[in-house]
Amino acid sequence: MREFSYERIADPAAAAARAAEVEGAKFIAGGTNLLDLMKLEIETPVHLIDVNGSGLDKITETPEGGLRIGALVRNTTLSAHARVRRDYPVLTRALVAGASGQLRNKATTAGNLLQRTRCPYFYDTAQACNKRVPGSGCSALTEGAFSRQLGIIGTSDACIATHPSDMAVGLRTLDAVVETITPTGMTRTIHLEEFHHLPGDTPDQENALMPGEMITAVTLPAPIGGQQVYHKVRDRASYAFALVSVALIRQPDGSGRVALGGVAPKPWRSAAADAELPNGAAAVVAQLLDGARPTEENTFKIALAERTLAALLAED
């Protein structure tokens, strides 16, 4: 871990301004991802801006009947919120499938969206990794590499890492919107669909945030009802990242929405695939994973995605 300075800033606009002003500054929320990465010198901020006192830890109703989730609402609080459980159960289910109880007590809504990949080569600073050191190469794409956990779609020749969040997959089916404040004090909204970037040639640039821009909230549109489920498939029963996860909202008429986790650099959903829902899991996944480029080790994720969705569709 490199030396760093630390300050707390309660006002979001001031925090954003400060983050833009100090080169190499970063926000810290729960710290459950950032501190681990700092210990390994994968992240090397010179200055930390602690935003925990900023009052963004409330869940409020929006005029449209949706919810505004403050950036600092803890994953545990969010998953247990009565309205979330009643109106957005896919979110609760996705949240409790992630990490462990202790981590969820600390992890925040914004931090969760911004957590970084779990690619093993990203985690070993001795190995080439375009995401960690742009232009150094991608170790996961060489012959003999261990790539079983990594992505199969939306990836590039520069990076095949996945975004590991469960929460984001649930949010994606709910058409969530990210609200931010910029260093100049402007607010913006970014649809979750546009929030995470595909790697292309710049896998280090993971999202739509500008330098210093701070997430203030995530909003959910008015509830859409339906049966909402989340199934996370992994090698052990708990406390592991997804091989494949499926978030599903199904309406009584058979229409609905599907998003996949564990397969791509962002929660993976498309309108065309949603439209196939009445035709069953094979049709949805064929559409959703069209153009997939798995490695030999993770090609099973295609069949697994289809089977996981089929399993959810078979449940009543």
Binding site: R118, P120, G144, A145, F146, F241
Partner: peptide, 25 residues
Amino acid sequence: IAVDTHRGYFPAHDLAGYEVPVHAD
């Protein structure tokens, strides 16, 4: 303990990468 047969080491070298059973298993 998966082997990177190109680089000659175990890349998933922590307790997140090397999974052992949890209580739920």
